[in-house]
Amino acid sequence: MLRPVAKGVKAMEKATLLSLYRTMRLIRRFEERIVELINRNEIPGVTHEYVGEEAVATGVCSVLRPDDVITSTHRGHGHILAKGGQPRRMIAELMGRESGYNRGRGGSMHIADLSLGIYGANGIVGAGAPIACGAAFAAKLNGKDRVAVAFFGDGATNQGVVHEAMNLAAIWSLPVIFVCENNGYAISASIKEMATIERLSDRARGYGMPGEWVDGMDVLAVRGAAEKAVAHARRGEGPTFLECRTYRFVGHFTAERALNIRYRGDEEIAEWRKRDPVETFPAWLEREGIATAAETEGVRREVEGALEDAIAFARASPFPQGEEALDGMYATSYPNLPARGV
């Protein structure tokens, strides 16, 4: 449950609080609309939906600047939207269109917008962590106070390259925030079986960096913890491991329901759903008199409109031509590269 209103929260601008709600609502509805489009075969393949985890990306990205960098995961739509990604170009990408962020070369697991500091979703668990360190390394060498956030899940905390990245960030005091979205499951594997510690953020001590644990269903708690970690990094004091305990309300990926696999009970899902940030946060805003029901309804209407517009834009966008598939592989080109298949 959300905590009672703290003094600092009251002081937080109403516009900021409503924008946190807007981002969470946008992510939720984006994912729900995407599933509809997949089921109608308008989107090839499957996606990994961020439903339930909205407060994490929203809270963290709300304290980032446009020039800060993020690396994301296979479950990346939420991070990208929260960092300012345009629904139009995201949905166009998911539909494989030329107007998509990646011109149809990437799809869900690779959406990127370097101009927004989004160094890409990533299909390999944990692989973005050292890349975020690299962006932070460049910032530090160039004397810029930019920070980098590596988003990853509980599963990635057992991936070797994540440990390597954390150690590198610590020894060189890089401005990185390692945001672990602990949703309890790596696909079907419970983190309780895959790690012996209750709080993954305890591992931070082993690298000599601060480790923070926060309720990932509480967008203000996430924002507060991220604010502290980002300020620490910007001051040149190095990385933080920020664990956000959260939950995925839906399957690992769109088609999981059809597989009929059971690795968690309905009661567990129902318990977590009671804490759904996309429901509890606007209710709290109204209860505390921060926003009226009409205002939160206005946010919802605006989000629906933005998604309708994005879907219409994507549907109207042309597909790339097949023979353009060899473009974009190399920045410096040579004859005979890339090799053709025929």
């Binding site: 050292p130 975020a132 690299g134 932070a136 390394f137 910032a139 980098a148």
Partner: peptide
Amino acid sequence: EAGFTGLATGAAMAGM
């Protein structure tokens, strides 16, 4: 090796 290879990638994307 995986860590510093990835770090180089991120640094290169950021202009190094």
